[in-house]
Design a protein around this nucleic acid. Sequence first.
DNA 1: CAGTGGTCTAGACCACACT
DNA 2: GTGTGGTCTAGACCACTGC
Lengths: 245, 245
Amino acid sequence: MPAVINPVASFSPLYAQIKALILARLQASEWLPGEAIPSEMELAARYLVSQGTVRKAIDELASESLLVRKQGKGTFVATHQREDWHYRFLRLAPDVGQQLLLKNHFLLCEIAKPNPRISQLLQLSAEEGLFRIERVQSFSGKPIVFEEIWLPVTRFEGLTLDALKSWPGLTYAFYESKYATHMVRAEEQIKATSLEASIACHLDLAIGSSVLSVERVAFTYGDQPVEVRRALYDTTEHHYENKLN
Amino acid sequence: MPAVINPVASFSPLYAQIKALILARLQASEWLPGEAIPSEMELAARYLVSQGTVRKAIDELASESLLVRKQGKGTFVATHQREDWHYRFLRLAPDVGQQLLLKNHFLLCEIAKPNPRISQLLQLSAEEGLFRIERVQSFSGKPIVFEEIWLPVTRFEGLTLDALKSWPGLTYAFYESKYATHMVRAEEQIKATSLEASIACHLDLAIGSSVLSVERVAFTYGDQPVEVRRALYDTTEHHYENKLN
DNA sequence: CAGTGGTCTAGACCACACT
DNA sequence: GTGTGGTCTAGACCACTGC
């Protein structure tokens, strides 16, 4: 007889309820990125279900990359602060040669002018403040990416250009470690555009060159949008890679 | 005690072996797209394993979209000849408004000039013949996509422009129904380029306009490359959509 | 109703990591 | 060795489909 976790509503299967309970813990930052969660046996005992049911819940969370299983060691909360996750969301690759290692150069971090489109994407009211960050990323000296990033001031209170510049790792690892915000997934919209004069200098390209415009909305636990980026890629010697399944 | 399917090599788990056996059946066209495969119980009996083991094998194949499960009905071989699969590999979406319904217009179908790059992508020797197809796709009268398609002559023997033109559905459904070739996955490389004169007329755009170049290699069962496409998208009012997980 | 996939359990054993 | 996740089994019952 299954233990009824939520007897009132929901005809959802038990493992889905267990999954929701685990998700709630993650969302509440009770188990932090990089840490191990309790073993399957312990969770099964805690929630009064069988190990198999916990397993199925964890399986789904692992397939969504919220958790990472490691045989013999345990199950861990996914984190961007790891080598093998550096390219989690980066789809830019060189046409020939090895995978690239981009070098970061932050240009500015300011309070953004009100921008209804960005506010809407982040599900914020027009009054709520936004940071706006600019940066350039280069590969062996050549600038490849110009990027604008918008972040809600409320979640990223006190953010400064210096803090960004002095962080050694990835931006998403920075969010995780300084603002307890783990990015789970993202959606991108890609277009081809002509390079504007104001940006051309940053990319070392002629005005009017064709560049790839990639607009990204990134989400944390619970499908909450937290960050908007608009990047311009120089694709003369690189491309955006995508797998369709 | 597990039934040892392949006692010689492979320390792979039982369900992986069952998965391979099912995959081989698909690859051999023993179970055709759209058809139901035997029930879990029947497969379990046939391979002398428990239902749970068959289930895990099918689960993986379903998550790779090779099979589709339908509760109460059975498990079916995935097919492109279905309404809900029409946009399986199409990532182009209008900036505003509903999902689009593209109209096809085939321009030509010829024996291609030798092309080492395409041959290499399709893992063919330079001598093996290739078809080359051109088409334009439009949305409410406006041309949006210009596309070149390369196919190996051996697999698509007797292909003609008329056959393509008279096919009412999707190209991948055509391959499936006329050439017993089901596309399983694809890889795309995306760049921004300037529109050439020879193609500009097809897209109703000025020479030198920025357009999205999408090069796709599509694979059938067993990771065998079968088709190369190079598409140019007019992204003034559309975009390429991508989800990062 | 019978047949299908979907869920849940309990228990056994394997593979791996740490100590 | 102990503890973790990974595999496999056997059997029960549920949910959905179609006759």
